[in-house]
């Protein structure tokens, strides 16, 4: 623990945390409470009358096949984004860790995509893959691979995953690099003397020692893929074609703000809230156990 500050006044500490508390209460707790309340209500499309319906909204949502499909899509997106971005980030971090000359240049360049807004990242990739004017899309079509993510749902989905992963690679890269650099050099050298080649050293020493970092990133990436891909999807496919890229968060938006079914939308939000809570608890549990060991 760092040095502790002792306040003489009893009021000052509360005053100091008040702004942050106010922000949290007004922008997080209040809307969340509103959402929870709304999930038990049914409102007509014009907002003129509301009616308490208990868990009916939840029952409807969970029985809705399109919702369950969106759930599966979100899971798939989480898994794919995590796998893509973590895999590549680990590869880049391992390489950047070995670079001696110009290491800063590599590191800076690899971190840049993180500064790009998700919506822009999405638009960027969509332009590149555009079947008529995109560099990649045009090339693919010329090469005989039919590419049109405006029509092909799977291709649209893959593109959203790519755009989302590309941005997340930077984030994962930073953490993996920090993780790699915190592994004592002596341990790697000891393994070298113990007769382990580079590949074996990586899999038996480096990778296991990165496990806490990897788990942290896994949770962060899944949360990212669940929630923050909204901007990417909204700026590009808007859930299409034919709902192929409609994830849970996008469905919340669609049902609520487009479909004006506030009750259902709120119930979906509540379910998402539960998922995030579970992920966070799991993460803290594991980090605690690591800290004790």
């Amino acid at each position: 623990m760092g040095p502790q500050v002792v306040f003489r006044s009893r009021v000052l500490p509360y005053l100091l945390v008040a702004p942050q508390l106010a922000v949290t209460l007004i922008f997080f707790f209040w809307p969340a409470a509103q959402g929870l309340r709304q999930s038990f209500l049914r409102e007509d499309a014009f907002g003129l009358s509301t009616e308490f319906v208990g868990f009916e909204n939840y029952a409807t949502v969970l029985a809705d096949p399109t919702y369950l499909e969106a759930f599966g899509r979100s899971l798939a997106m989480g898994a794919l984004v995590a796998a893509f971005s973590m895999g590549l980030a680990l590869l880049f971090a391992t390489m950047a860790d070995r670079v001696v000359r110009g290491a800063h240049v590599y590191k800076t360049l690899l971190v840049w995509p993180y500064a790009v807004a998700p919506a822009l990242a999405g638009v960027l990739w969509f332009l590149m893959f555009n079947p008529t004017i995109g560099v990649v899309g045009y090339t693919l079509n010329r090469a005989g691979i039919s590419w049109n993510h405006y029509l092909d749902g799977d291709q649209a989905f893959l593109l959203v995953v790519l755009a989302a992963s590309w941005k997340e690679i930077s984030y994962d890269f930073v953490f993996f690099l920090a993780g790699l650099q915190s592994i004592p050099r002596g341990v790697i050298e000891a393994a070298a003397i113990d007769g382990a080649g580079p590949a074996r050293r990586f899999w038996t020493i480096v990778f296991p020692l990165l496990a806490p970092t990897s788990f942290f990133l896994l949770v962060v990436n899944i949360v990212y893929a669940f929630f923050e891909t909204f901007a990417v999807i909204h700026a590009t496919t808007q859930g299409g074609p034919g709902g192929a890229t409609e994830t849970l968060v996008y469905k919340v938006f669609n049902d609520g703000f487009i479909g004006l079914d506030f009750g259902s939308s709120a119930a979906q939000s509540a379910i998402l809230m539960v998922i995030v809570s579970l992920l966070t608890v799991a993460q803290f549990r594991l980090l605690d156990r690591r800290a004790e060991a």
């Binding site: 004592p184 002596g186 341990v187 050298e189 000891a190 393994a191 020493i205 296991p208 020692l209 496990a211």
Partner: peptide
């Protein structure tokens, strides 16, 4: 090694 460099895992 000076810091032993044991494999912590």
């Amino acid at each position: 090694f000076q810091n032993y460099a044991l494999y912590p895992h």
